[in-house]
Every structure is written in structure tokens, then in C-alpha cells.
Design a binder for these strands. Sequence first.
DNA 1: CTGTAATTTCAGTAATTACTGAAACTAATG
DNA 2: CATTAGTTTCAGTAATTACTGAAATTACAG
Lengths: 183, 183
Amino acid sequence: MADQLTPMIQSCVMHFGEMGSRWGINRTVGQMYALLVLSEEPLCADQISRALGFSRSNVSMGLKELQSWELVRLKHIPGERKEFFSAPDDVWEIAKTLIEQRRKREIDPTLSTLRGLLLEQPANREEEYAQARMQEMHELIEMLTQWTTEIQRLNRSNLQSLLKMGGSLGKVLDMKDKFLSRS
Amino acid sequence: MADQLTPMIQSCVMHFGEMGSRWGINRTVGQMYALLVLSEEPLCADQISRALGFSRSNVSMGLKELQSWELVRLKHIPGERKEFFSAPDDVWEIAKTLIEQRRKREIDPTLSTLRGLLLEQPANREEEYAQARMQEMHELIEMLTQWTTEIQRLNRSNLQSLLKMGGSLGKVLDMKDKFLSRS
DNA sequence: CTGTAATTTCAGTAATTACTGAAACTAATG
DNA sequence: CATTAGTTTCAGTAATTACTGAAATTACAG
């Protein structure tokens, strides 16, 4: 990837920067990641720094963050002294990592807090009601996360077959019904 | 809900405040919403302001934001001049709204940007590769969102039945296989 | 219409988060 | 083991976002 990004790549990188902030990663890290995903060859920190025009130290921190999310891998290019980074080739791999990491950061702590509070004895009518809501939340969240865990287990080919079904849960559920009614 | 929160409710409210920042809503809005969800009766802005100890104007802005997310409804209590607010009773209702709103804000813009870029003619080898990645991303995201759209269509009882299946996609897929092999 | 309770707006300020450049550190090379 | 290419750390600063209090607005009751 050259110092000068092509307009198309530029647009995409910028967009991911904008969205980055809505996604809990900051603008620069978003841009960096888009660049890595769109680049066929691994990139070194300097290349990223030049291509996006922010400081070398910022790139260093950004890469560290991306590594903590397990979204990039470190590649050593033979004969090169620098470290090179790349995003996984498989987009589904990336998505799975994202889902998992977000669950860890955004869901799990809440589940465990709720569990803790549900163990307490309600002191009055008010707490009874509150606990009932917490119980519902806990059940629902747990179900949804279990669901995504299952999706994460899918490999590319199962995913493909779902994709061919139009990604439609409705159809899968229909099948469940048909199956059950035949049993 | 009294001015003084019970310790249990307090903990829950605080937790949702902390998590708020990871969820793209800020700390105070997170606390406000937790309070509304946990409270059996609708609350007015003053009550919220007193219970959580932030300024009346901050509460006003927070409520406005929650309304823009369609997460609260306005209730007029007969004989009362003030406006009262409440969260939907059904937790699943809340979750559906959250999913939908996040899709609108975090996914849709990206889909449309990608679509736009995919219409362009690649200028060189580099852009060809980049476009291929964008294509994969677009397909994957579209599939996952279609999936969640289907989930959103479920009503409480279908949801319940999935819940009873252990929320397991694996089992649903097994059924699909069994059904197909019998046909 | 007038007075008053309630809500909203907004300019100013506080708090948080993002970014940089200089210096410190690390490790490969001759 | 000295040199140097490369990376990381971190204190300082810039930019963004969150929050407040005072003033403006709304809307209802008499």
C-alpha cells in the first residue's frame, strides 16, 4: 500500500474512521484497521503512519489496541527488520473476533453484576419488582449471547449454507415447525 | 421510587452507568434508563434528578436522547401537571428497540457506503483487492443484519420456545438437517 | 389574559479522551 | 559492545464530550 491512498480506499478508510467512534474504538484506530483490512500485503507502522498522516506513536498505540482485540496479527517478513501487521484474510474470522470481544466487554460484566444482585434478598416491594426486571434481563441477555455463541461456532461452509437460505431465521424456524409436526 | 435508592437498585443503576459509556450512551443517560426500567411507576424529571443527583437540565437532555432512541414513553398522570416517563414493561420490547436503533446508527451507514464504493470501477490491482474485501464485508454484514431482523420479528411466545430449546442455534440447525434428510 | 409550574435551550465550564513529540528502551548488525 | 533502526512510553496539549445554572420558552389554571 503506497503512501498515497487511492480515492476509493481513502473513502472507505475515512468512513471506518467516522464509524469507529460509534463502535467504541476511536477514529484513528478505525482508520488503521480499515487500511489493514483493505491491504493485500502486511503493513509496517511507518507505512500506516505515512498513509494516514498521524504520528508514529499514535500508530504504535493503535496497533497495541488492535492486538489487544486480537484483530491483527504480527508478521515478520524475512530479511526485514521491521514488524509487519495484517488483518485476518477471512472476513468471517474478523467478525467472530469482534463479536466475541464485544461480548466480553459489553455483556459479560453486566451478566455477572445481575447475577450478583439476584442472589440478594429483596428488602421490600420495590426491590422485589426491581429484581423481577433484573431476572428478565438476565434471561434474555443470556439467551441472546448463547445464540451468538452458536453462530460463532459456525465455520465458513455452514455460514455459506445459511447465507444461501437468505440468512433467514424465519425459514429455519419454519423447518423446525415442519419437522416437529411430522414427528 | 423514592429520593433515596435502596442499595440494590443503587448498585444496578451505577453499573448501567459504567456500562453506558461502552454502549455509546453516556454515563448519566445509562443511569437514568436503569432507574426507569427498575421502577414500577413512571417517574418525572424531578424525581430522576433528585434520585441520581444531577442537574435538572441534564435530565431533560437525557430524556430527550432516550426518546430519540424510542426507549421511553411519555405518560401523563391524571391530575398531575408534570410529565412522567417509563420504560416499556416488556424487556424483549426494549431489546428489540435497542437492536434496531443500533443497526440504524452503526450498520446501515456502513452498508450504504460499501454499496456505493462497490459500484465504482477498480482503477488497479490494489483497488480490485480492496473491492473484493468490501464485497465480502457487505455480504456478511447484510446476512447478519437480516438474521437479527428475523429475530426481531419474533414475538414473546416464539422467543419463549427458542429459549426453551436452550437458545441453541445448533439444535435448530440439527433439525434443519434432519428435516432435509427425511424429505 | 396573568401568573406560575414545568420544561428546554444554550453559553460557559468541567471532565474525559485522543494525539503528539521527545526521550527511553530494545534488539539486530557489524 | 557500539551503532543504529525500530518501537514504546509518557508528560503535555489539543479536541471532544458531558454537565451545569441561568435565562427563555411553553403550557396550564384561575
